[in-house]
Design a protein around this nucleic acid. Structure first.
Lengths: 234, 234
DNA sequence: AAAGCAAAAAGTGCATGCAATTGCCCGTCA
DNA sequence: TGACGGGCAATTGCATGCACTTTTTGCTTT
């Protein structure tokens, strides 16, 4: 082939492709419904079609892309109904994580959670959306890990990535930052008290609110919006 | 290549391979830790290595197999800790499904559940383990579907398959059939009453008991038990 | 002008081949 | 005897090629 790949190879080529394509989906660069052409992707990342195919297969197993036999792959497009079901699941999963956190987090984990959470108040005052978004991810990851249940964490993280494309605009709603912080506060407080039930409920409510915000967004931005192929082509 | 595949092709070859290999793992024909050699599998199913590789990739994404770069794939071997975590998740997931069932099942679904459940009492009296096992699967599937939440169903089904290899011997314990039926009865009764909380608890308890039985089994049958390669070789 | 059809173009699915990596065997040396 | 290492066999990882399916295009027919 033409040029060798001299990128930093973290894992195998396939793994890189899974991450590369997965990222573009999760970050919204590739939009639901968009066609994923094997040859274009292969050219775009300078590999042959084989690893691209394998990556698409794995992403399909993860639910991020949809494969239609002999008809190519597209970024998974979910119905409103399925979307609602995913948010619902997410609420339950986060609820479970929060409950487990309240019951199981070590003293160190509790302290770290609290400290980070308090520190983030500053970001809210500053209205630093970008930074808050980063913190927000950290916060939730902390909850998943704090549950001390690898499988629940896996399920939650997976569901979270599948929802990511639809959750993009949530922080663009006015006052969302402060609201989010307060919801986090309720979760943290309950966890610090060791009150599993309350922590669970707070986490479920938190997701539900995000869900509603996203539903509005998703409704106004139907996936049917045809985006063109993945760049490069030009 | 030598002979063409004249099996009934449900989907693509890769899909078949995923099912074929996945089944063998789930049913325990391939045991945790067992090596999955690409060439052997390809020969065994009379396909080239490519679809086998893709299938292994997808199974890996599903968590059923473990892939070590350049070092082949093995049937996923889980630590006792991870196993416990999966059963714990399973209990929570089934609990959620049962709760949703209590709240959302249609009249028809409730009736069907009840009828089937009552019919299965006969299998218990007869001690028909095989048939009861089949019914048992049906019963749980009914719960997953009755939750009317596609995503929760997906997560639950997926977790269930990952646990399947470790749950096989549960019905060999004496008196297990009757016990299982009673547990099912508690779930059904709560669902019929529309009592979500009770249904959830009953389902969680049901899984927990299975979990304990399986843990005993798994402990006495460590995954380290080396099984030889997948037949064919002879 | 619209509908139908045929042939070409595009794109997917799988097989095969070759390079690269790993594991193993055996000889060498301390 | 045991540790080290060089070469060989086995196996994985990826690229390429060809067959087959779907889609598109452009012609024909009414």
């Amino acid at each position: 082939m033409s040029g060798k790949r001299n990128l930093i190879r973290s894992g195998t080529t396939v793994d890189q492709m899974v991450r590369a394509i997965g990222d573009r989906i999760v970050t919204g660069f590739l939009r639901p419904g968009e066609k994923l052409d094997e040859a274009s992707l292969a050219a775009r990342f300078d590999v042959s079609r084989t690893p691209v195919r394998e990556a698409l297969g794995q992403l399909s197993a993860m639910g991020l892309v949809e494969r239609r036999p002999n008809r190519g792959a597209i970024v998974a497009v979910v119905t409103q109904e399925h979307l609602a079901s995913m948010f619902e699941s997410m609420a339950e999963l986060e609820g479970i994580c929060a409950r487990f956190c309240a019951e199981r987090m070590t003293a160190g984990e509790r302290r770290a959670l609290e400290v980070e959470h308090q520190a983030s108040a500053r970001l809210v005052r500053l209205g630093a959306e970008e930074d808050y978004e980063y913190f927000n991810t950290e916060f939730h990851t902390r909850l998943y890990r704090g549950a001390h249940s690898t499988h629940i964490s896996e399920l939650t993280v997976m569901t979270r990535s599948r929802l990511a494309p639809f959750r993009r605009a949530q922080f663009m709603l006015p006052g969302r930052l402060a609201k989010s912080w307060q919801e986090h506060d309720a979760i943290v407080t309950a966890i610090m008290r060791g009150d599993g039930a309350a922590a669970g409920k707070a986490a479920r409510d938190h997701v539900s609110i995000v869900s509603e915000a996203s539903a509005v967004f998703a409704a106004g931005d139907p996936a049917s919006r045809k985006a063109d192929s993945i760049g490069l082509s030009s």
